[in-house]
Amino acid sequence: MAILIDSDTKVICQGFTGAQATYHMERAISYGTKVVGGVVPGKGGRGHLGLPVYDTVAEAREATGATASAVFVPPRNAADAIVESIEAGIELMVCVTERIPVLDMVRVKQRLEGSGTRLIGPNSQGILIPGRCKIGVMPAHLERPGKVGVVSRSASLTSEVIEQISSQRLGQSASIGIGGDPLHGMGFVDCLKLFFDDPDTDCVVLLGEIGGSDEEEAAAYLCANPAPKPVVAYVAGRHAPTERRMGHAGTVNVFGQGDAAAKIEALRAAAVTIAASPAEIGLTVRQALRA
């Protein structure tokens, strides 16, 4: 079993019949993901991609035994869709939706507390286990099976780094995008714990960026619980102007918090290897594994 999902994990898709969901779920199925159906309110009883469509997550779960859900619901209804899955007892959700209002996510966070559900995202490219399965929107042609775990706040930077890792003739155990929004489900700490416990992961790459405090929290965790495997990090935005939103809603600094220099310092102090340049992350991973 890889972390979080495997090729026998039964997956449903919320917002299944939309254009983006259709495109990406088709690719997920051909990659090996066990997609068992979809949920679209008002479209229950129909079929899509040769799979059944249900009105509610509870019905879909009952009928298919699904434990994971891919959320492709538009921003105004996405929070409700996530809450519906929490209530239905879905164990793992991946939400790719961008631009969910932040106060909707406050509501989601409150419902997640104490539930048995894990949420990846929103605004996430998802999770991929090379050669086995994926839930999300990431490309899959550069990943190779291997022993490097990748956790990131940015989809495009993840693709870049996976190419760098693969070009060092190394592969990945899993790659997870925690999402670019200010409030999200799983954070770096949750993912580090999973990778540390995973016998198939030898090294973890953490791709952070300016804004928020996920990197600082990871650093604090690693100070208290020294990493059993090498951790390599890069924090994007060292030269970004402050007080501006740089693409991701999560990249705004408040109170000088969340600037790249402070994050890098905190991670370095926690014995994390910092990649000197974004073009040399793959190389840094190779060196960390050799050390």
């Binding site: 990131s152 706040r153 940015s154 989809a155 495009s156 930077l157 993840t158 693709s159 870049e160 670019g180 791709l207 960026e209 300016i210 890069y234 994007a236 935005g237 060292r238 030269h239 970004a240 740089m246 693409g247 991701h248 990249t251 340049s277 974004p278 073009a279």
Partner: peptide, 14 residues
């Protein structure tokens, strides 16, 4: 992508 764009700006400056 925002992350790759931030990294690109970083690399150019460096």
């Amino acid at each position: 992508g925002a992350g790759l764009a931030l990294a690109t700006v970083d690399l150019l400056k460096e």
